[in-house]
Design a protein around this nucleic acid. Structure first.
Lengths: 210, 210
DNA sequence: GTTTACATACATACGCGGATGTTTATAAAT
DNA sequence: ATTTATAAACATCCGCGTATGTATGTAAAC
């Protein structure tokens, strides 16, 4: 019973959806192509028609989620902003809010974060983190050039801290079964933490010549 | 060729060492008992003599690393300290220093952190994190009762933030291939971050006008 | 009529667990 | 002190299930 092209695309998406759920709940290694295709309401034949093998499936899953990730990264990449650290703070909290409401993003994070490096998961996360590092680094570099950065940390160190904190926050939130308000607590933390990175304005007897 | 009891214990440890390395480099799921036993210089027969199956091996691996974890946790559990937050800061930096120098701890963290939940990895991490949460929570609770805690965060929130930050820091450090100084940067971050949790002593004006 | 979009059937490989064989430490008996 | 029995500490081998990949069938879409 051959389907139309739209139907074919629909089954393809169904397979991707099923893979997302199975990969997330069972883990990539334990996930069987039979389980995935059965969950999608098709047979392994259909899966092998659309995808070469399990790795290709994971790749496709990754490609499908890339636009969202890219959008979030670009949202923080606006150049020449007059308040880079403020923009960074805003972007981070926005990201947390969006993440908390998007089950698909959460599943992708779990899949890529909990999958072992040899299965391509780490490579993906590395790439995303590298792009994120570059954009954040750019923003923070702008802040430094404007003299807004504390001397306590170098720009690269601030970038590392930001990424590690956000990653750890999200990881723990997912691992804990979402039992604390990610965006709320995260936003408050980011706000306070950002103050650690800002050069102190002027506390009574501080001589800071420009 | 029957070995003496010391020899037997030695091969048992050799198997555990091999499992630690293989699990860490290949991932738990991709790790074959044949690979592990071959790495240990024995056959699968020996492995099955000492351990019931792969899950049992992982359990034994976990048990072997427990004393270290417990020691670190207890190090932060001294009750009735006159400066709970200071103790917490000290314990956290000490933990980072020790972790940075202990390859075995690093491997165990990677194994348990990157292994999928269904294979027992997450359960282990959950338990350790739960104990850690309780001890930290106790410390921070003491700080609150002494009125040393900021009103910005609840004690539980502070605990969550501390654990998430440390976890994220360690995870990113391992994932990045150790390309930033974990203990050094971590200690400086913890020191500054801890100031966010302390109730401000008395700064003339405490609110920041835009 | 040809290609598409699958389903079905089968061939292959691999890892696991267990059965069994073998050697030797160790204790008990002599 | 020597012998004997038992069980520890492995090695070797094999059967089984299971996942994977491929080859083929087939009905509908183009």
């Amino acid at each position: 019973m051959r389907r139309s092209k739209e139907d074919a695309e629909q089954t393809r998406q169904a397979i991707l959806d099923a893979a997302e759920e199975i990969f997330c709940s069972q883990g990539v290694a334990a996930a069987t192509l039979e389980k995935i295709s059965h969950r999608a309401g098709v047979t392994r034949g259909a899966l092998y028609w659309h995808f070469k093998d399990k790795a290709d499936l994971l790749q496709a899953l990754h490609d499908r989620s890339r636009p969202v990730q890219d959008a979030m990264i670009r949202a923080a990449a606006q150049d020449g902003h007059e308040d880079p650290l403020g923009l960074l703070e805003q972007a981070a909290t926005d990201m947390l809010v969006a993440f908390e409401q998007d089950a698909r993003q959460q599943r992708m994070f779990m899949i890529m974060n909990f999958t072992s490096p040899d299965e391509g998961g780490a490579a993906w996360l590395r790439q995303v983190n590298a792009e994120l590092f570059l954009t954040l680094s750019s923003l923070i570099g702008q802040a430094e050039q404007k003299g807004e950065l504390t001397p306590d940390f170098s720009p690269n160190e601030v970038t590392v801290i930001m990424i590690a904190t956000l990653n750890g926050f999200i990881s723990d939130w997912l691992r804990s079964g979402r039992l604390f308000p990610l965006a709320d607590l995260g936003a408050r933390l980011v706000k306070r933490q950002m103050s650690l990175f800002r050069r102190e304005k002027l506390t009574s007897s501080d001589d800071v010549p420009a």
